[in-house]
Structures are given as structure tokens and as C-alpha cells.
Design a protein around this nucleic acid. Sequence first.
RNA 1: GGCGGAGUAGCUCAGGCGGUAGAGCAAGCGGCUCAUAAUCGCUGUGUCGCCGGUUCGAGUCCGGCCUCCGCUACCA
Length: 597
Amino acid sequence: MSSGKHVLTAVAWPYASGPRHIGHVAGFGVPSDVFARYQRMAGNRVLMVSGTDEHGTPILVAADQAGRTPRETADHFNRVIAEDLRDLGLSYDLFTRTTTRNHYAIVQEIFLGLLRNGYVFPKTAMGAISPSTGRTLPDRYIEGTCPICGYDGARGDQCDQCGNQLDPIDLINPRSKVNGEVPKFVETEHYFLDLPAFAESLAGWLRTRTSWRPNVVKFSLNLLDDLRPRAITRDLDWGVPVPLPGWQDRSDKRIYVWFDAVIGYLSASIEWARRSGDPEAWRAWWQSETAEAHYFMGKDNIVFHSEIWPGMLLGYSGRGDRGGEPGRLGALNLPSDVVSSEFLTMEARKFSASRGVGILVRDFLERYDADALRYYLSAAGPETQDTDFTWSEFLRRNNDELVAGWGNLVNRSISMAAKNVGYIPAAGALTDADAALLATAKAAFGTVGEQLGRSRFKAAITDVMRVVAEANKYLSDTAPWKLKDTDPERMATVLHVALQVVDDCKSLLTPFLPASAQRIHELLGGTGTWSGMPELRAASEEGGPDYSVLTGEYRTEARWESVPLPVGRPLQPPTPVFAKLDRSIVDRELARLEGGE
RNA sequence: GGCGGAGUAGCUCAGGCGGUAGAGCAAGCGGCUCAUAAUCGCUGUGUCGCCGGUUCGAGUCCGGCCUCCGCUACCA
């Protein structure tokens, strides 16, 4: 079953302006990890990359507020976020950051490649500047009186009252939301990405994307009707320098953060290859015709992954509407799938760090297990529509499904076998019921695997839980505890079947619940690493400061198939794998939510 | 305002190339006692957001409307 395909798993880069809440990891973190772990078990060569996105105005604002430098702010939140993702068990081959020398070099190379092929051009335009800092003031950071309806709280880009799109220069009494000063409108030269020059090549490509979620394709095709050049530089001192004479050494011109962030997928792949000892290894994921690239993100990020990044890749590769030559790195593959999640709300409200609505990943993991969250997000996450996280639903999913369904099956099966036999018993002649249950579990690798390959996570985990329910029913029907004295051979057969199905379900659930799968692997007498876990490791590069990255060894014996349990392997009486939660946590967490406002 | 998505049992959600709807949980009854009072069986539940149209028949197609979410290119 091992096809050995190269599967790039590209995960959206969390922005390092603050700690992340569970809505963020619901959208891209957990789904991408389930996908990657499944692909590895299925025998494919996975490269899963991401990192923190550390440039841009919001980081500067956060830094100013905290009395820190941008770099200190980025260092701090990079650490916090990386620890969160590690504790969730997300199996990044490399989780790095956008402030590395390597990233700067790759961003500049892409910029120059696009420039050489004529897809990037300079233009002078009016822009708002903060007089005190000299930095670009983004439209949304400017407010004033709407020239159309007279509403006083209008933002520079749009009036919330009348809904009209605005140009900040037209605002009456414009002021900066950051510090209240009056912005200065000046002529400033910037480089633009010529998106209209990709209209045809993007349209041709998007029309072949029949396997994508329909809303993503439709949304993306629709955007093509109104493509405009997009600025890729800013008047800022925090970002990647523009690699051109007269620009390179200026402290007030930087590449705009969105442009550098999407390039992270490529720069992280190259950084990973260098660390692996084979600097060219990344090419197998980016340049082979048979390689796949799956991108995971929230719905607010679709445009960057289905439009802008593909445009940049086409332009660099010389395959935009105006042609050109591939850059120094060579032609680069477009995404083969763009998987977008909807949004998670918290007790019917939008997550909002500023208003204290929600729960941070680290707070969640201090009180509850990572697999409990992963289970909830896999079974009830915002896969195809916005979904609401409630504490009572979390409690219910955990107690009634994870603990009572799956945890209990594991516990009752292994307990009985450990007490009455002490090792994995051999099976005698199989009844129809025995064979049917074994066949159901075996068949699930096909059906569930098919769902996972298409990023249908809810359907996939629901199918596994159906197998779990059938196994619980099988034990009730066959009642092995009654056979101990009357028919021990039959009891041994039933327990053998039950343990085999527990082992199969453990494999089926490994992508979703890696930590508990490891424990169950051990309860069944297995040794060694079944589910590889990420770890934070020190990293360094020539000429730059040390930093740390998330990485790990994920190639284990775990396979996406039913593996016969070795008869005779010793078993110990188990302790519960999942913790049942007390009802009182609902009120306690709701009180915390209220208190946070 | 424009574009896109969503509105289905008490709750969280599936589904739907047109033939009066499903799962899990919650509720009730019964069985079992291996297991974290876990498990197994049986039982009920809905004007499928609103209004109109097409059709023998619409939750499913078409039009309009309401509400929520996202995007709207200088948030990333």
C-alpha cells in the first residue's frame, strides 16, 4: 500500500502578535496534523512546515504597547506559540519563523525573480504615514468622520455605519487609532505585484481544481474578475529589506508582511532540507510532477492561497500570462489542494483576545488533555461551516463519546484479557459475529483513509467511532465474562477478537489522538514509539541569532492497516486512558469567560 | 453596497442529482455487570429561516426577503 508519494503539508503561519486561542488551532492546526499523520501512516513522504509570521504593523503596535522591541515581541510569542503547538502534538517537520536569515534570502530571491519576469513594478502613490514614527499607517488604523454619512467612527478603509468603501485621504478629521495623531499623506514609491498578469493562467489552473471544496473554487474564480496590482512594500522599519540598489539599505522601506509570509512555506522547506543534511531535499516536494501540496488555513486566508501565492509561484516560474524564465531555484509547483476551514465561535460569540472571549491554547492544555481537544475539534470542528464551541458540549463529547465509548472499550477489553489470560490469547474457530467484526475494522482502513485523503475529518472520525460502537456491542452480545468457567476457549477467542479490533481502532484513531494511541500501544504490550511527538530544539544559522524550532522524528512502525497482534504477548491490567470530566467544569469555565470581560 | 458561505429535532451537527428527513447526546423503559455508574436493546422527537414560483410532488430547483459569518485588495 506504500505509494511513497511526496506530500507537502503547508500549514498557515500563526501571527506572533500574541498568544493563540483554540479557534486558531481549530482552523488549521489540528486538521493539518490529522492529515499529515494519516499520510505518513499510509506510507507517503510527508513534509509538514509552518512557523510564526513575525513582521508587520500589528507586531510593532504590540511591541510599543508592551514596551519591547519588535524582535523581543516576536521572540516571546514565537516561543509561546511553538510551545502550544508542541503540547497539542502537532507533528511539524519544521516549525520555524519569518525572522531567519534563510527566510530573508528566499523572500528576496522570489521578489527578484518576479521582478526579472516583469510581474513586479514600482509605482508612486499617496500613502498615510505616522508623523512621529515615519511608518506606514494602514487604512484600518486611521479613523475619522465619514464624508458620506457623517459617522464619526469611520475607519480609513470602510465606514461601519453606511458600509461605503472609503479612501482614508477623504476622511474628515483623520486621526491614528494607535496614538491619536493626525496622519500625514505623502507621495511614496512602492513595488506592486501585477496580479492582472496572472488572470488567464490562474483561471486555467483553477478550473482544473475539481477536487477542492466547491466554495473555495467558486470564491477564487470570482476574485479573478477584479484583480488589481497589490502593493508588496511598505514604509516600515520592521520586515525584509527590499533587495535593490537604493532600497536595500534604507531603514524605512520593507517588504510587506503578507508577501513574505506566504513565501515561508518554501523557505521553511529549504531550511528543513539544510537541517536534514541534504540541502536539495526540498525539491522532491516542490518540483516533482507527482508531488502533492496541501495547504491548510482558515477561510479568511483563502485569497492568499488560491490567488496570490499561486500567482507568485507562476510568476517566479515564468508561467504567468507574460511568460518568463524560472528563477534560480527553478520552477515551483502550485498547490494541489487548498483546504479552508470555517470559524469556531465560543459560546455563540466571536473569539476576541481584546474582549477576553475565548480560551487560549495554553490555558486549555493546562486543565485538559490535548487529545480531548483534538477529539472535539475533529468531531465537531468548523470543517464546512462555522461551529460553536460550548463547554457543555466539550464535556459531553469527552465523557460520553471519548471516555464512555472508546476509552471504555479499551479498558474493558484489556482488563478482561489481563485478568483472565494475562497475555494476548490465541483465537480458536471464528463465529460469523467474530469474523464480521474483524472485517468491519479491517474495511474501515479503506473507507476512513479515503475520507482523510480528501480532508473530510468529521466523516472520518465518525466512521471510526461507529466501529468502536460495534465492538462494544460485540462484547455485550458475546459476554466473555460469562464464559470464564463454562467455555474458556471461546472466551479466549472473543478476547482475541476484541483486542485485535481495539488495536485496529487505535491505528485508525492515531492521526486524531496520537498521545492516547501511544498509551494504548503500550497497554497492548507494544514497545517503542508509535506516535512521534514534536519537540522544541535549539537552532542556529550563520550570522544570525540562535532560535528554536519545532521538529520531530515521525517515521515509526505505525501503518495504516490492520496488523495481527502477536499471540502470547504479556498484558498488564490497564489504567484509564482518558479522564472523565466533572460537570462542575462547565460553570467554572463559563464564570472564567464572564470574568475575562 | 458587492461577492461567497450558512440557517435541518431540546443541544451539536450529517444529508439532500426532487418522492412528506438522519446520527450522537439529552428523556423514558428494559437487559448486563467485564469496564472510568461505563455498556447493550427498545421507545418519542421536526411546518428542513420566511414568502412566492416551477412541478403530479420541493427541505432538495428558481425568484425575493430576513438573520448570522467571511472577504471586499493598506489586518495578516
